[in-house]
């Protein structure tokens, strides 16, 4: 136990020293990114867990590769320099979210097929465009994330997205909650259910885009849902879940980054394993929800 604590202390000290090193600017950006992103994860992740739409978040995440591949292709081949991968990812995430919400609101009983189609098609489109793009693009950094290659500009975009998500989460809280809990009753109270459900999936889509840059497409679902699932064992309200899961996400990102720095292991994977480990421990506590 003592040696464990000593190791953790050493890891943290090493990490904080690296943060102060002017040559390690990327590490500071990564950390700030984690701080901003954790707020978004906490808000959207709590809705995802409460409404049980993890599989939708998964589909949106995988569709993101299509947008990234398309953006890289357009940049390289057609010289659309403004069309960077983050923009491509955002567009493809939003389009898939709107498509899913449209099908669901029409009450089609085949929504799970559509979600599967979006999931796989997004990946396929992404792989095709990546292979058409001249020069070597490593899909690994998108699939498994690379928080260490983010630029200061990415950080600004994330901060803006954060403010937007926070504003929607606070102002629309009671109506989003009502739509998640009991759609029919919300409709009877005059709430435009279609609008709020689409808004909710758009929030999930934007958070997924942020997450992809931190942990990558494949691991997104874990970081979106694990903090909220753990939080659900300690609080009985959606609001409490949001606050607690934001803090947990922050802890996992900072903890995972420092450990990956000292052990030279991929950051995304370390962050997710840390979250999964804490989740397993939390199972020993009696659930509140």
């Amino acid at each position: 136990m003592t040696t464990g604590l000593t190791t953790i202390t050493i890891i943290m000290i090493e990490f904080w020293e690296a943060l102060r090193d002017p040559d390690f600017n990327f590490l500071r950006i990564a950390l700030l990114m984690g701080v901003f992103a954790s707020v978004a994860f906490g808000i959207s992740g709590s809705f995802v867990v409460a409404r049980r739409i993890t599989y939708i978040a998964g589909a949106i995440a995988h569709a993101v590769l299509g947008g990234i591949g398309f953006a890289l292709y357009m940049q390289q081949v057609h010289g659309w320099t403004f069309f960077d991968p983050l923009l491509g990812a955002t567009l493809s995430a939003l389009i898939s979210a709107w498509l899913i919400s449209w099908i669901q609101l029409r009450g089609s009983d085949r929504e799970d097929s559509l979600i599967g189609v979006i999931w796989a098609t997004g990946m396929a489109v992404g792989i095709i465009f990546l292979s058409l793009t001249p020069g070597y693009t490593d899909p690994m950094s998108y699939l498994f994330g690379n928080i260490l290659i983010l630029s200061a500009r990415d950080l600004w975009l994330v901060a803006i997205l954060d403010v937007v998500l926070l504003a929607i989460g606070v102002l629309g809280y009671s109506r989003l909650q009502a739509v998640c809990f009991d759609e029919e009753f919300a409709r009877l109270r005059g709430v435009h259910v279609g609008f709020y459900y689409t808004l909710l999936l758009s929030m999930v889509a934007l958070s997924v885009v942020l997450l992809v840059s931190v942990v990558g497409i494949v691991l997104v679902v874990a970081l979106l849902t694990l903090p909220a699932a753990i939080a659900g064992r300690f609080t009985s309200t959606l609001r409490g879940m949001m606050i607690l899961s934001s803090l947990l996400a922050l802890a996992f990102i900072v903890g995972g980054l420092s450990f990956s720095y000292s052990s030279n292991l991929p950051a995304g994977a370390v962050i997710v394993l840390l979250a999964a480990g804490v989740y397993l421990l939390s199972l020993f506590r009696r659930s509140r929800v």
Binding site: G190, Y196, L238, V289
Partner: peptide, 22 residues
């Protein structure tokens, strides 16, 4: 028709009855 494990307290549910419009 209601998810019995939805993370919510009694007051938040009852207040849904006070929602008016979008």
């Amino acid at each position: 028709h209601i998810d019995p494990r939805f993370p919510i307290d009694v007051a938040s549910i009852v207040l849904m009855g006070r929602l008016r419009g979008s």
